[in-house]
Design a protein around this nucleic acid. Sequence first.
RNA 1: GGGGGCGUAGCUCAGUUGGUUAGAGUGUCGGCCUGUCACGCCGAAGGUCGCGGGUUCGAGCCCCGUCGCUCCCGCCA
Length: 605
Amino acid sequence: MHAFRTHTCGDLRKAHVGQNVRLSGWVHRRRDHGGLVFLDLRDHYGLTQCVVEPDSPAFALADAARQEWVVTVTGPVVARPAETVNEALPSGEVEVRIETFAVQSRAEELPLQVFGDIEYPEETRLKYRFLDLRREALHRNIILRSNIIASLRRRMIAEGFTEFQTPILTASSPEGARDFLVPSRLHPGKFYALPQAPQQFKQLIMVAGFDRYFQIAPCFRDEDARADRSPGEFYQLDLEMSFVTQDDVFTAVEPVLHGLFEEFADGRSVSPLPFKRIPYAEAMLKYGSDKPDLRLPPTMDIIDVTAEFNDPSVEFKAFKNVIAQGGVVRAIPAPGAAAQPRSFFDKLNDWARSEMKAAGLGYVVFEADGGKGPIAKFIPDPVQKALIAKAKLKPGDALFFAADKPEKAAKLAGAARLKIGAELGLKAVPYYDFHFCWIIDFPMYEWNEDEKKIDFSHNPFSMPQFDHDAFLKLTGEDKDTVLGIKAFQYDIVCNGIELSSGAIRNHLPDVMIKAFDLAGYGREVVEAKFGGMLNAFRYGAPPHGGTAPGIDRMVMLLAGEENLREVTMFPMNQRAEDLMMGAPSDVTPKQLRELHIRIVPPEKG
RNA sequence: GGGGGCGUAGCUCAGUUGGUUAGAGUGUCGGCCUGUCACGCCGAAGGUCGCGGGUUCGAGCCCCGUCGCUCCCGCCA
């Protein structure tokens, strides 16, 4: 007989009755009836009830066992009496009668119970992650994560993609997030950077003549965390393809994501292929966001009502002043909101003022006999009718108004749309639990108001949607033209979460240098910082493009969790500390000397 | 860097208007119990009320500071 087990704790069924078996696992739960002790034994595979009676030679040992001890039991599988069958347990028809009992390892009093579903503070859960991982919910999520990654690999390979590894120690890059730096021992004063993404490498893989690359790629960014954003490190399904248009990328990626979500939907619905494509400008107007949640009904689509409020007959000064200063008024329809109490509207206004730092969130309730609410009296009947027509309102619907500079108004309207939709419990018809869309035609540049300069608005490596020769002739003088340029840049969005960002890349050195030039980076800077890739483009670069869906976020969606730590095996806390391993940590003076590093502690404020 | 919330037994939490010896559940330890599966019953141990200062006759509770955790904003091409 094997030293530890002949079966797992998830194996035993009625068919095993009579066999002598050996199980090893953790003592999940102990029920002591004096003369009779039940031990639920747990391993990765399941739970099996074991029982020991006083006349058993193993009784004293087994009776002493406590929660989370690791033990090995040996004995016959017996059928449980009919009235004691546990239907909640797959092995519930049988139990193991303990004849010999061995303790493999004991457990101290637990800081966190494995049994049950008590909620524990993050600090405890992270410090004792190995205990938390034993618990059912987290254990299940981590297995789900593994299955999702395995499925992605299968699907990508089936689509003709090949997985390649790219370096973890690479060069720091100027744009984008803050790099994690690794000091070089051999080159005093110089640093490697951990890759924010294998962006340049995957493009170089295309230049190198490979095609259809993918990787479950670790990415590192030294930025602050959020519930849906791990500090430090995360994983992407990184992919890149040669000789493709934007549509080819979509066609390659859609079935992978759709198939994945269908596979793990577990009864939930997935929006059908092809995913809706929404230009950035339209998304910002209709949803107030570049990551719209399409689970809300189209009757809640935001509309621009600047013209209506600018009509001479409207006497509402607050909005008129905003418009006079270049602002806009956006209206968020709230279907059926007339049934809500006054407090519903007041709370939303308070929310807009406190959390969104807005001047307020005005509203009009359109009853059958006319508009109601604090600002309705400033809006004459013809304009009210125009608003009703434009927003396609029915009696009993309301409109909320966000008035501000275009970006701020869009942002407030977008947040209000989500909040109102959630409060009213409104759902699109047909409703999909996972509602995907592509956001396309992102602007190439944006105006940086603080520094009064043109910035890349997204990815400096994407191809502008602009005539090649005309683009090369652009200068900083053509500000409006430059700010109007769209890029072959796209995002995949699901349920209001940005899953991935991608682009058809700029593979032409002259366009790339001009693109950086327009954002205020001289040729020297581009040569110095992206010389490797730029140089590669001078030796025959194929047109190429790709994207990189965030794996952690996909797992989060499919697991139905709202925090990445619930789907990450060993996460750090929000301050980027590993409480279990004690990272980051001090290092020895010797280590620092070897790296030519001296610590200059921050001055205490 | 900024804002909100939280911090009481190993763990999860309660603790009234500032008022006697700070409680419950769970876990731990001891006793009883032969069919439980959140077993049950009896008992015990277990507390720097995060830390420091202040107000007060009296502080878990009020005030100030500080530390930790968490959520959000900034940030995340």
